[in-house]
């Protein structure tokens, strides 16, 4: 079920706390005011449950 990282989305709930970036296993998330999913993302979805504001959607 891995793709090229085009399906992970960050919704408007995101505050930019960076929690997802710390749990991303491929270092694919940049943080600046909010999370930015970069092209390194493999859509593994491991970050989703760590978001405290439910801002990550696949």
């Amino acid at each position: 079920m891995q793709s090229d990282g085009e399906s992970m989305k960050v919704n408007k709930n995101c505050v930019g706390c960076g929690q997802c970036a710390a749990f991303c296993i491929v270092d694919a998330i940049d943080i600046k005011g909010k999370a930015i999913i970069t092209c390194t993302c493999t859509d593994c979805r491991k970050c989703i449950p760590y978001c405290p504001v439910k801002a990550l959607e696949a």
């Binding site: 709930n13 505050v15 930019g16 706390c17 960076g18 970036a21 710390a22 943080i31 600046k32 005011g33 909010k34 405290p52 504001v53």
Partner: peptide
């Protein structure tokens, strides 16, 4: 290293 911001639902 990282810039973390906090507001609204995670303030």
């Amino acid at each position: 290293l990282m810039i973390q911001s906090y507001s609204n639902g995670w303030p």
